[in-house]
Design a binder for these strands. Structure first.
Length: 510
RNA sequence: GGCGCGUUGGUCAAGGGGUUAAGACGCCUCCCUUUCACGGAGGAGUCACGGGUUCGAUUCCCGUACGUGCUACCA
């Protein structure tokens, strides 16, 4: 390929950005960056009835969070403006008219009621195709059947019409897909798709072809659900710009729901309790919030990573990849043909890996916000850092830092009495009283010194160290969890440690 | 219904005419820790089915089944 690689992601601003959408972005991005190409985002807002306020900005926010920054877009600029299809409206009509001139398209005046009647009739006749195609187009209300002056009269009278592609029967359309290899479509099964709608907006079919050409797209990635309409797009390329100008296509496998089968949808996430959108999406009309990976506590690195290996594998045992590694190792040939079921457990594992792998500075601010939102104030930055380093390997999602680390900030509000009570006796009480004394006199407050004293007293009193350790842990933490006991004591400090032991003693002695 | 695409453990998957069919997630057992994790050591669990081709098929071919996508003036 002599030309610079140019790929595009073409979302419709209709709501939250789905996992599958982000993966499409990712594969586009990886392919482009691997070949030093450009990644373009083109907003496909040709359906005014589905347009949702705020959805476009939301999509860019998601890309931003993921670190998949477009080279050209509505907000990043570029030399192929505008990048919003609604603003390119006049362009499409021109090409639709050109197709009519060439005899590859026609005006159709059929009302939706007429179309419905046509389908009913076909159904009644036992036809297995309900399509508007060469079988029936000569019996419909279009410029193919009408006299030229009749057509003109209708248009002049302002009759609403659409422009349809005229698909010739009995043609075999060969098609080469970067992922699926060679295939062939029979035009007998392809219908006369609407190219230009009554409102003057193009349908997806016309718009992708025209814009991919105008924006010099070299490689086009999209979901597998588009495969059946590929022949229409190929025909359009052939009629309009020439097949040699057509981008290389790659139809990505679908991301399936974890249980049963089928395309993963937002509903599945709600039903099974995991996110499907990249970030929280708030429906502007209902105000309903749909949870996103970000807000649930995922790291963008993990999110990208888990998406990348859903349908792609580099052939080695490696599973954890950074964006840079992905750019280096990605190859379209290694993308699978079959869909992959989404597994939230595995998704969480990736996040855990990235929490362990990344320096805490990468996500410290987010953790701080979580603590703040839970009502923990007076968070000192370096202290939070110490705590995070201590507990990071027991956190899967970011909010786990709170549940795993609250006790570093607040004294326990309750104790695991069931563990302590049965073993509690007078000797234990004496032990902890002298521990308080000795600890009080301790000059250097560090884990080793605390442990030394702790064990020394135990030996003197001839008590079981393990049991005492468990008790001290419950006193300081509230339950049997957390990292090394003495490092906890060191971290929370002398005053806090002593205070907490005394508080606990009051509870257990009584 | 028609057309397209797909099918290696529960899930993600490597592999590809001859292998003990990798690895990961999850699950189970054990070790470490008198805690929870992390980590370590094990374990259970698989080539959808039927025909070919072949000395030999999980791998190649053809069917079948199953799944899934599309079949809108939605993308």
């Amino acid at each position: 390929m002599a030309n610079k690689v140019r790929v595009r992601f073409a979302p419709s601003p209709t709501g939250g950005l789905h996992l599958g959408g982000v993966r499409t972005v990712l594969f586009n991005y990886l392919f482009a960056k691997k070949h030093q190409g450009d990644f373009i985002v083109r907003v496909e807002d040709t359906d005014q009835t589905r347009w949702v306020d705020g959805a476009e900005k939301y999509i860019f926010d998601c890309l931003d969070w993921c670190g998949l920054i477009p080279d050209e877009s509505v907000i990043h600029g570029g030399s192929y403006t505008p990048y919003r299809q609604s603003e390119r409206k006049p362009i499409y009509r021109q090409y639709a008219e050109q197709l009519i001139q060439q005899g590859n398209a026609y005006y159709a005046f059929d009302t939706s009621a007429e179309l419905e009647a046509m389908r009913e009739k076909l159904k009644a006749a036992g036809s297995n195709s309900l399509q508007y195609d060469h079988h029936i187009r000569m019996s419909m209300n279009n410029s193919l059947r009408l006299l030229p002056e009749e057509t003109k009269a209708l248009i002049d009278a302002g009759t609403p019409y659409v422009i349809r592609i005229k698909v010739n029967p009995n043609e075999l359309i060969p098609f080469s897909d970067m992922i699926r290899g060679e295939m062939e479509f029979d035009t007998n099964t392809v219908d006369d798709k609407v190219l230009l709608k009554a409102d003057g907006m193009p349908t997806y079919h016309l718009a992708v072809v025209v814009d991919d050409h105008l924006m010099k797209i070299t490689h086009a990635f999209r979901g597998e659900e588009w495969l059946p309409s590929a022949p229409v797009h190929i025909l359009l390329w052939k009629y309009l710009f020439g097949l040699d100008q057509m981008p290389h296509w790659a139809h990505l496998p679908l991301i399936l729901k974890p249980d049963g089968n089928g395309k993963l949808s937002k509903r599945d996430g709600d039903r099974l309790g995991f996110p499907v959108y990249a970030m929280d999406w708030i429906d502007p009309t209902t105000k309903e919030v749909t949870k996103g990976f970000k807000e649930l506590g995922f790291l963008p690195e993990a999110f990208i990573n888990l998406l990348a290996v859903l349908g792609w594998n580099d052939g080695t045992e490696q599973e954890v990849f950074s964006l840079e590694e992905l750019i280096e190792k990605f190859s379209i040939e290694k993308v699978h043909k079959g869909g992959a079921k989404f597994d939230f457990e595995k998704a969480k594992w990736f996040n855990q890996e990235w929490i362990k792998k990344l320096p805490i500075e990468n996500y410290k601010e987010r953790v701080k916000e979580i603590f703040l939102s839970k009502g923990v104030s007076n968070i000192e930055d370096s202290y939070l850092g110490d705590v995070m380093n201590l507990i990071k390997e027991r956190c899967i999602l970011l909010p786990d830092f709170y549940t795993q680390g609250v006790y570093f900030f607040d004294s326990p509000s309750s104790y695991d009495e069931a563990s302590v009570k049965p073993k509690w006796d007078e000797a234990k009480k004496e032990y902890f009283n002298s521990l308080i004394d000795q600890l009080n006199q301790l000059e250097s407050w560090d884990a080793i010194s605390i442990e030394t004293i702790f064990k020394q007293i135990a030996t003197e009193k001839n008590s079981k160290v393990g049991e005492l350790q468990m008790m001290l842990r419950v006193f300081l933490v509230g339950s049997k969890m957390g990292p090394g006991l003495f490092i906890i004591a060191e971290t929370i400090g002398k005053t806090n440690t002593l205070q907490r032991i005394e508080n606990a003693l009051k509870v257990f002695v009584a």
